[in-house]
Every structure is written in structure tokens, then in C-alpha cells.
Amino acid sequence: MLRIAKLPIVIFAVFIITFPWIASQIPAINHYTDIMVFAGIYCLITIGLSLFMGYAGQISLGHAAFYGIGAYVSAILTVKYGLNPWVCMCIGMAVTAAVALLVGAPSLKLKGHYLAMATLAFGIIVFIIFNEETEWTGGPDGMAGIPGLSLLGFDFSSVGRYYYLVWGIVLAAFVFTVNVIQSGTGRALRAIHASEPAASAMGVDVSRFKILVFVYSAVLASLAGSLYAHYLNFVNPSTFDLFFSIKLLIMIALGGMHNIWGAVIGAGLITFLSYEWLYYFEEFEVIVYGAILLLVTIFLPKGLAGVPGIVKGWFRK
């Protein structure tokens, strides 16, 4: 049975809960809580993407689009129509689910490179829409004045509170996804990854499962997009470009695609690299990402999440 150990999840939860306090004690990393909010938002996307790519063995180069749709639905409905942000978030997820269903149904019949190309094209189309539909999206200038979040009088405007909101959602999504992986559904997904003919001969409705996971990962990305919009109070198209889709790929490749923990580790590391540690590289940042992707695929095909296994192997010898 594929069992995902519970102890690391508990340790991880404790780390997440105590992190803002730890960060506040050390002046040099005071602002890390803010970066962790973004790490959490990206983590939400990579968790779904890990299930779709690592477990079900599919590929998507268009998840930035789902992230963007969530963000823009939230932005447009709150700024232009004054709707409740939570309602907008749900509408965003519903819209994204519908779009993912429409895009996924035909394109998930494709495999490998062709699926990559189809999702890539979808991502580019959506990016163009964000840029060109100026009346709705504000075009390249973006949209400002997106309200923050509050619930029953409790205001999530401070960094610390938003941190707990985001990571609370991430933890819930993580546990949900872990449960799926350990269930018959997860088994069916891994079977699809290994052999589609055998999976369907065993009664697995391959296309239905693929679409299901695609929609699930898209909905998580949409939720992440809404959280992003309400945190920054501003969105513009460049956040949701092709490079972001690729960055998501680098995150799960670095963390380890075949392990749900890889999604968390990769999202965390890449977020800190791009927001903090690679600051001095400026435009050359891209080269560093390229190098990371290259080195990881050559030397750590299972990503950082595979390192414990490698170390264990050394001790066995």
C-alpha cells in the first residue's frame, strides 16, 4: 500500500504554526512571514499539479492561466460589482472548473508532448485575453483596489493573519490530496501513469480520471489566484504568463514529482529563491532556474523528496 507517513505531516503543521513567531524573534528574517504567504499560495497550486503530473503522469504548461482566472474573477467581481470576496472566490473556482472541463475534455486525449503543447497554447491564449480585454481586466496596467478578506468581522489584513488563512487552506488541501493518493482513486491514477491500456482493461475510466484530476488541480490554482489577488490588492497579467507555468514545473521537479512532499518543498524553495535569495541576479534569475532544472533532472530525478531514499540506500550498503 502506498502509505504517506503521518508524523512528517504533524511536524510540518507544527512548523507552519510556529513559523511566524520564530521569524518575529530574528530580525534578519522578520519579513519571511510575508514571503511564506506567497510560498503557501504557490504550494496550493503545486499540490494539485503534483497529483496531476507526478501521480497521474500527465503534463500541464497552462496552470498559470487557471491561477490567473481565479485572480481576475475575484478582482473583477469585487472591484466592478462590489460582490463579497468569499463569494467571488467560489465563483472563480466554479468558472475555472468549467474552463478546465472544456479545455481538458479534448486535450487530455493527447499524450506527452502534444498535451504539453495544447496546455501551453491554452495558457498563452488566456494570457493574451488578460492583456487585451482592457475594459474588463485593465489590460497590462492591471487592476488595483481589490479589497482584503475578512470573515464575520475578523479582519485578515495583517500579514500574520493572512499567513494563517493561506496555510490553513494549504494544509487542508494537502491532507485531502494525501487521502486521495492513498485511496482507490490514487491507485487508479498511478495505474494510468504506468499503463493506460492495462488500467482501462481493469475497468478504470481513464479519460474521466484524467479530467477529474485536471479540474481538481485547476480549482486549487484558481483558489490560489483569488488568495493572491486579495493579499496584494492588485493584479496584472505578467504574474500569469508562460514563465509562471514553467516556474511551477521547476517547483515540482526540484521538490520531486512523484512525491506529494515534493510539491511543498519545491514551492517553498523556489519562492524563497525568487523573492529573496536570487535578488542579486536580477534578470539572470532565469539562468539559475534553468541550471536548477538541468541539475535536478540529471542528478536527482526524484527531486529533493527523493534524497532521504538515496541516503537510506547508502546506509544499507
Binding site: M1, L2, R190, A191, S195, A198, A199, A201, H258
Partner: peptide, 15 residues
């Protein structure tokens, strides 16, 4: 056409 990424047990369970 086994599911090579899974255990013997899981292969049968998928059946």
C-alpha cells in the same frame, strides 16, 4: 503490462 510503479498487492487491488 503491469503497473511497475506499484507493489504486487496494489496491482491486484487495482484489479
Amino acid at each position: 503490462e503491469l503497473f511497475g510503479n506499484m507493489t504486487v498487492m496494489e496491482n491486484v487491488m487495482l484489479g
